[in-house]
């Protein structure tokens, strides 16, 4: 069987198996416990029944995730350029970046609510905080790992600082940048959801998926809660997929990571 077909059939098989187990467990539960695990078709029905509130929440969460992720990409890139300038700058700033990463969101959220109010603003900042660290660390590593021979070549032809940065260091850092981007893309929807859960608000735009989850759970709408989880997964896949496509577009022609078993 061809490798490609196998790559497609294997995960499909695993999926079918898991759904089978799912139904089996559900079947085994006693009547008064069945609410604990809705079946896929019940979840699908809940999705349809709550489509209006879910799609609004999805839109809001997507907005928060995209904005937080976008700001994190742009600002981390700028900071990485500064950090790559010297060891001294790195040594003086790295500890604080670590602290930024280590601060628990649960604690920051109420402070942010105090400062910028509950809702989108807080969600964007929390997403930003979650995405920022892997981006800045990877991009900086990439910018300082340029092949010494290539740097020498640029010095030889009297390249100015601008040329050395944008014709050499930045393109050479792209594979590292995309490593950070892949991690951040998976974190962004989760960050927006957590942000919404801890600092969301139904005021104004009506809140995102995290806020919606709080509502469903308080109303004991368990299938809808599962539907919310499913929508979050889809959002995560869209983000990760988008970054994979971007990465493929910018690296596949030249980078070895795309040509492992090439013949």
């Amino acid at each position: 069987m061809s490798r490609r077909l196998l790559n497609f059939l294997l995960p499909l098989g695993t999926g079918v198996l898991m759904v089978g187990i799912w139904y089996a467990i559900r079947h085994g539960l006693s009547e008064d416990m069945k609410f604990l695990l809705p079946t896929p078709d019940e979840i699908w029905a809940a999705l349809a029944a709550n489509s209006e509130s879910l799609s609004r929440a999805t839109l809001n969460t997507t907005k928060g995730a995209v904005l937080g992720f976008g700001f994190a990409v742009v600002i981390s890139f700028g900071l990485a350029l500064i950090l790559s300038l010297s060891n001294l700058i790195r040594a003086s700033l790295y500890p604080y970046l670590m602290i930024l990463q280590m601060m628990p969101i649960i604690v920051i959220a109420p402070i942010l609510v105090l400062w910028v109010g509950a809702g989108l603003n807080s969600v964007v900042i929390i997403t930003f905080l979650i995405c920022f660290f892997p981006l800045v660390v990877n991009t900086t590593q990439g910018l300082i790992s340029t092949d010494r021979n290539l740097v020498e070549l640029f010095r030889m032809y009297r390249a100015n600082r601008w040329q050395e940065t944008f014709l050499l260091r930045v393109p050479a850092a792209l594979p590292y940048f995309f490593t950070g981007l892949r991690i951040a893309a998976v974190l962004a929807p989760i960050g927006a959801l957590v942000g919404d859960y801890t600092a969301g608000s139904s005021a104004g735009d009506g809140g995102g998926l995290g806020f919606q989850a709080i509502i469903y759970s308080s109303q004991a709408k368990y299938p809808a809660l599962f539907a919310t989880a499913a929508v979050t997964c889809v959002l995560g896949f869209v983000f990760a997929g988008g970054v994979h496509i971007l990465s493929w577009l910018s690296l596949s022609k030249w980078h070895d990571s795309y040509h492992r078993s090439d013949t």
Partner: peptide, 13 residues
């Protein structure tokens, strides 16, 4: 002009 021992090409170009 200088030709180094390694080809020193930019792999992305």
């Amino acid at each position: 002009a200088f030709v180094f021992q390694e080809p020193t090409l930019l792999p992305w170009l």
